[in-house]
């Protein structure tokens, strides 16, 4: 289920599923709202990538934070980017709508 994938990051993990556009989840491994977001994506059976920013070190972490800032200047988690549009926080309804 998880494998490295040529997304924005060498570090992101890919989850296979139905193609609903480019979906990237920036998350923290300790955050329960991030976990809920990931579970929602998984149960929706969409293809997505995710990255646990707290597990990144050095340059990788800096790069990830820069990337998140483009969508969410406050760099809070989870930040879910669907086709260039960000949903910040576990907003179940919005996420479901965005996934169609």
């Amino acid at each position: 289920m998880v494998s490295s994938y040529g997304c924005d990051f060498m570090n992101s993990e890919h989850v296979a599923g139905n193609d609903k556009g480019k979906i990237m989840l920036y998350a923290l491994s300790t955050c329960i709202w991030c976990k809920k977001t990931r579970e929602l994506l998984q149960s929706s059976a969409v293809a997505f990538d995710y990255i646990y920013v707290d597990l990144l070190k050095g340059e990788d972490r800096v790069q990830a934070i820069d990337e998140i800032k483009k969508y969410n200047p406050g760099t809070s988690f989870p930040t879910l980017v669907i086709d260039g549009k960000a949903i910040v926080g576990f907003r179940e309804k919005e996420i479901k709508e965005a996934l169609g």
Binding site: L28, S29, T30, C31, I32, W33, C34, K35, V53, D54, I65, T75, S76, F77
Partner: peptide, 27 residues
């Protein structure tokens, strides 16, 4: 279960950083 998940995050952060940083924020 939800609360325990967060408590686990606090313990993880204590190990990583030496203090119980908020599990839902990047320390």
């Amino acid at each position: 279960e939800f609360a325990r998940g967060l408590v686990k995050g606090l313990l993880v952060n204590e190990r990583r950083y030496g203090y119980q940083a908020c599990p839902c924020r990047l320390a």
